[in-house]
Amino acid sequence: MGSRDQATDIKSQSADFCGQAVATRDAYGSALLELGRRNEKVVVLDADLSGSTKTAKFAKAFPDRFFNMGISEQDLVGTAGGLSLTGKIPYASTFAVFETGRAWEQIRQTLSYSGLNVKLVATHAGITVGEDGASHQALEDIALIRVIPNMTVIVPSDGFETKQVIDAIAEYEHPVYVRLGRAKVPPVMPAGYRFIIGKAHTFSLGSDVTIIATGIMVSKALQAAEQLKKQGIDAGVVNMSTIKPLDTDTVLEAAKKSKLIVTAEEHSIIGGLGGAVSEFVAENHPVHLRRIGTSDTFGCSGSPDELLKLFGLTSENIVKTVEGFFQDFRR
């Protein structure tokens, strides 16, 4: 048993998750463990969900640098703030809905206003939480955090990118919000990809449409683009993994090149990526735009795949939206 544990441990140590289908929360758990080995300043806090957020891995290896705060998200965020004031680099994790919802004002007043070096890494964001239902599905968290000055908001698309995000934010002395998911996601980022905070990754820009996607929707956007190309629609895809600060250079480029911009996110169409891109293009380069996400509604219980279909978070719906636009456009 012990030797088997060691073997898996060594494997996860060296994994950068390139090309691997893995839940972003799992990539987080491994990345955090490795980071903990390299950087003694890293401390981790959780709110009674360490098994689910995967901070339990770090907790097991570094019990002295792990603090379970119990079911008290406000205390979690405040304590992380205090730890940062002693030069530590706190990673504070719980489910996205509770971290950004219950502790919003602590994030605003304590972390952001003072510019504290705290990493809020929330898991179980979005509809793919599944069966737990609306109470546990954060569809507003990007909006909630994006609106706060000083905050950086990052939504990795796969395990490979997650690992790099977790490493990068340790070197970045600002409060950061990272949004991770529960369900396994396919790999999308190419080998050799290097994540830089605030820099989008352009797979390609389409003369007809560019789909600007984030998180799990990047893989759906890539599938949709393939399908659209077969139908003679020149479609490109951008992975906007940093939502704040928004990579406005890339958005501007896409707006200039494409007839249509589609945003795609596992989040409300209000205030998230769709909101951020709309705000920017409306002022700087008005262009036709469609937002894909949940439409001002709560989620519900069901399996992640069923819910993705129910709420239109699929490549099919991206294709349909683009087709619909060009039908009207040509008329």
Binding site: E131, D132, G133, A134, S135, H136, C300, S301, G302, L310
Partner: peptide
């Protein structure tokens, strides 16, 4: 319980 379309959500509504 917890199936799509069932009023019995994972947490009570």
């Amino acid at each position: 319980l917890r199936k799509v379309g069932c009023p019995l959500q994972g947490h009570p509504s």
